[in-house]
Design a protein around this nucleic acid. Structure first.
Length: 511
RNA sequence: GGUCCCUUCGUCUAGCGGUUAGGACAUCGCCCUUUCACGGCGGUAACACGGGUUCGAGUCCCGUAGGGAUCACCA
């Protein structure tokens, strides 16, 4: 009885897909999957001047990494192909012309200069919002003011023109938004929007309405920045006689900058990441680090993003994408903008790393290591490092950055720690313990641990006094996993060497 | 500036007329522990303001203030 749910994500390939767009895609995806519907990728590339090489591929790859897949789209095809608006160019004109026939649109020949003059004139006359509308259109060059044969002649001569929507002077336009409820706008606040540009391409307004209709889209879920133009779209559906099948609208709250000052932009300071994958902008030549390259897990990014504007109404915070599909609903999307919280993504990531299987983490960690030219360690070895470090890291590179001592030798020691630990008494204890360690035939954490504990007991010294010294000798730092575990993993040879080296260094006068 | 949208701890939020205003991140303290984490326990911390409506308002209405979006032949 109800129509099959069909939603679309419709980015324009003008650059890397940023995190707000990702969330829009995610909500569309969750909504589609929740109701067993279709999710469509439509590329809105009607502005040929803003085309950016590689952007479309980037968008697809980013969403694929996050586990967001499409049922129809430029890359997978589908019954409504093509899905790239530039390739659909010839289907929009007929709709624009049908509006002219019905008296809902008109041809306009004004040059950019003339438009600019008109705006200047209105501004000078203190008009709050200068626009091409029911009043100003009468003093402009268009098919409403020009004689019919001149219009015909101009078009025949190949003079550039646009088609504009003839927005009524005084009409109330009501629009029901699934998130915000009824939104009422007076038509005089909307200008006579260009529908078809002089290069023959449709503008967003025409293209999105025509395509949503042709592709049988049931719900338009998009960012709040579209809310002001939504009434215009309602008008278009009405004039095209499609109001009966007009999709439902849901305008998502914006993702705000961490300081709350405006919506999140592509370039953000403060080290916050706004791209899913690293992106090189071919226009500006700028490089942006992505979540993937920074060592975030896609599941964590998804979980974080899902909660930026939506919540399940329960205390559960950790949701797999399947959980999200099950729990998602438009009703539980908030109305107000959500600030991006860099700390919270990190938290989600650490939670996901902790609960992800070591073997799944292994290739990611190996990749991070090889990028730092750390090679020659077996999968088994790295897996043990992961096990030991798992609940201490925030991102994948931390498996190196917080654990360098598993992979390489060092001669720097945490200064504060050294001041405290490298005293004569501790050095003496380890000079005494060293031979015992050397004598060990079995080299595992339990045995090492027992030797140290036995020594501590016999010599009546607190374990808490001598163990930190050992940590400093073995790792150079003051924190990390169990020292005997580390020693067991790096092996007897390296462990002994590091202790000897430290003892030597610390007993030298120059220390 | 016009129009539209929004407003609960520092942040994300629960709340849909009667709550000790709940949870999470962050932060602080305690416990666990050789350390750092993890985990556990606890603390600090919010209804922007002013009017109504009502027996009763974070919840409904109206103002004010603040924030945001938008005002192109860009999406």
């Amino acid at each position: 009885m109800n129509k099959k749910v069909r939603v679309r994500f419709a980015p324009s390939p003008t650059g890397g897909l940023h995190i707000g767009g990702v969330r829009t895609a995610l909500y569309n995806y969750l909504f589609a999957k929740k109701y067993g519907g279709d999710f469509i990728l439509r590329i809105e590339d009607t502005d040929q001047t803003r085309f950016v090489e590689g952007a479309e591929e980037y968008i697809i790859e980013s969403l694929a990494w996050l586990g967001i897949t499409f049922d129809e789209g430029t890359h997978v095809g589908g019954p409504h192909a093509p899905y790239r608006q530039s390739e659909r160019k010839n289907i929009y004109r007929q709709y624009a012309e049908s509006l002219i026939e019905k008296g809902y649109a008109y041809y306009a020949f004004d040059t950019p200069e003339e438009l600019e003059q008109m705006r200047e004139r209105l501004k000078a006359a203190k008009v709050a919002s200068p626009q091409y509308n029911s009043i100003t259109r009468n003093s402009m060059k268009n098919s409403l003011t020009l004689p019919a044969d001149e219009v015909k002649a101009r078009i025949a001569n190949g003079e550039p023109y646009v088609i504009r929507l003839k927005v009524p002077r005084k009409e109330e336009i009501r629009l029901y938004d699934e998130i915000r409820g009824w939104v009422v706008v007076q038509s005089h606040q909307i200008d006579d929007k260009v529908l078809l540009k002089s290069d023959g391409m449709p503008t967003y307004h025409l293209a999105n309405v025509v395509d949503d209709y042709l592709m049988k889209i049931t719900h338009v879920i998009r960012g709040e920045e579209w809310l002001p133009s939504a009434p215009l779209h309602v008008l278009l559906y009405r004039y095209l006689d499609w109001e009966e099948v007009m999709p439902k609208f849901a305008h998502l709250p914006l993702i705000l900058r961490p300081d709350g000052n405006g919506k999140l932009k592509k370039r953000e300071s403060g080290g916050i990441l706004t791209f899913p994958l690293s992106w090189h902008d071919p226009i500006t030549n700028e490089d942006y680090l992505g979540y993937r390259e920074a060592g975030f897990l896609p599941e964590a990014v998804i979980n974080f993003l899902a909660f930026l504007g939506w919540n399940p109404g329960t205390d559960q915070e950790i949701f797999s994408i399947q959980d999200l599909i099950q729990s998602f609903s438009l009703e539980r999307i908030g109305k107000s903008g959500a600030r991006f919280d860099a700390e919270k993504v990190k938290w989600f990531n650490s939670v996901y790393i902790r609960s992800t299987d070591t073997q799944k983490l292994l290739p990611l960690v190996k990749n991070a290591l090889s990028q730092r030219n750390v090679t020659g360690f077996s999968d088994e070895y790295i897996s043990r490092v992961i096990d030991l470090m798992k609940d201490r890291v925030v991102t994948i590179p931390d498996f190196y950055g917080l654990a360098t001592y598993f992979y390489q030798e060092f001669d720097q020691y945490d200064e504060a720690m050294k001041q405290k630990q490298a005293n004569a008494e501790n050095i003496q204890h380890w000079q005494a313990l060293l031979p015992q360690l050397k004598n060990l035939n079995i080299w595992d954490a339990t045995t090492i641990d027992r030797i140290i504990h036995d020594y501590a007991e016999i010599n009546k010294v607190k374990i808490g006094k001598i163990l930190p010294t050992l940590r400093l000798m073995i790792t150079g730092v003051s924190f990390g996993p169990s020292v005997p575990e580390i020693m067991a993993l790096i092996g007897k040879e390296k462990s002994i060497q590091r202790i000897e080296k430290a003892l030597l260094l610390w007993t030298q006068p120059t220390g």
